[in-house]
């Protein structure tokens, strides 16, 4: 009897504890309601444009019929996935996508960090603002403009690069955009040029957030600039680097449609045909929405698995993670 009472008491206590926790949460939310109101549009945005459309993923398992709509169309199981893997191109598509993504995720990672460190070392704030402005600007150009510029710069005979080659005594008629070997450098460096400034913003903000007392202490201990960067700045922004890296892994099977689509030519199609361009051709242009959705879903699921795995690894090894 006594034992039973103690059990009831524990349950009651636990229930009461949860209730009081809930009421504390509501009170806290009430105290900061302005902040929650500011958050509300974001939550509504994601619900409307990210979560509700996820219901459409069922299309990946359905034979979409115009008159029956997404939910009324008949189920066809994993047919689209089988179709994709039976396509002789699928391996090449996945390989190309992974190579381009890996270049953007791994090789491109140090560039914005280095740029942020450089911004941090510019003492004159006006000069720093000017450099930052110049570095951010390309982010606001669409890929159509950037690739248009590249076409002119890399054009055979008349392009800037070929003019320089001719001036140096070379042939000057190389059609770089038709060369398979020129595709990766063109893709990578144009990506860096366009996005390095914008990506450096978060790193720079993280650097600014590091306690200045740490630098002063290091200086007093005789640490030079490189030592300060190595022992204070980089460890200080490590959580930011890890979080951004994990987030970027979510898009590992999406190599950036606009840029690749525009840079794709018959000459480089062996390395530039990626899953996104394939989805556009098969899914949208051929009206096979279910097939397109299945490939898109596969990209998303693999991205999600990678994010979850790497997040756990980062939590264990670096004590930094998304959650």
């Amino acid at each position: 009897m006594e034992r039973n009472t103690s059990v009831i008491n524990a349950a009651e206590l636990s229930g009461l504890g949860r209730a009081s926790e809930r009421s504390r949460l509501w009170r806290r939310m009430g105290r900061h309601y302005q902040l929650y109101l500011l958050l509300l549009p974001c939550i509504v945005f994601f619900i409307i444009f990210s979560y509700i459309p996820m219901a459409g993923l069922v299309l990946a398992f359905k034979d979409y019929q115009f008159n029956k709509g997404i939910f009324g169309s008949p189920w066809i199981g994993l047919t689209y996935f089988e179709m994709f893997f039976q396509d002789p191109q699928s391996i090449q598509l996945i390989r190309n996508t992974l190579i381009i993504s890996a270049m953007k995720v791994f090789l491109a990672l140090p560039f914005p960090i280095i740029l942020a460190l450089m911004f941090n070392e510019v003492r004159n704030s006006r000069l720093r603002n000017l450099f930052q402005g110049i570095a951010y600007l390309p982010h606001f150009f669409s890929w159509v403009i950037v690739v248009g510029m590249l076409q002119r710069i890399l054009a055979p005979d008349t392009g800037l690069v070929n003019q320089v080659i001719s001036w140096l005594g070379g042939d000057g008629s190389t059609f770089f955009l038709m060369e398979e070997s020129a595709f990766y450098p063109t893709m990578f460096w144009s990506y860096i040029w366009k996005d390095v400034g914008w990506s450096s913003i978060i790193y720079y903000a993280a650097i600014v957030g590091i306690n200045p007392a740490l630098y002063e202490a290091a200086k007093m201990d005789g640490a030079n600039k490189w030592r300060q960067i190595w022992h204070i700045t980089l460890p200080g922004i490590r959580p930011t680097i890890i979080v951004l890296f994990i987030l970027s892994l979510g898009n590992i099977l999406s190599a950036g449609f606009d840029q690749i689509y525009l840079l794709k030519t018959p000459g480089n199609m062996n390395v530039s045909e990626i899953l996104d361009t394939y989805i556009i051709y098969m899914g949208l242009e051929s009206g096979q929405f279910g097939f397109g959705t299945a490939i898109g879903m596969m990209q998303g699921v693999i991205g999600l698995i990678l994010v979850l795995t790497v997040n756990q690894v980062a939590k264990k090894w670096f004590q930094s993670s998304l959650w």
Binding site: M178, E179, T265, P266, G267, M269, N270, Y281, M282, S286
Partner: peptide
């Protein structure tokens, strides 16, 4: 049909690749 259409398009692109 869709695969053949795609392969026919690929053939046309391959021709241009072959020219270069």
């Amino acid at each position: 049909g869709t695969q053949l259409n795609m392969a026919l398009d690929k053939y046309k692109e391959s021709l241009i690749r072959a020219y270069y």
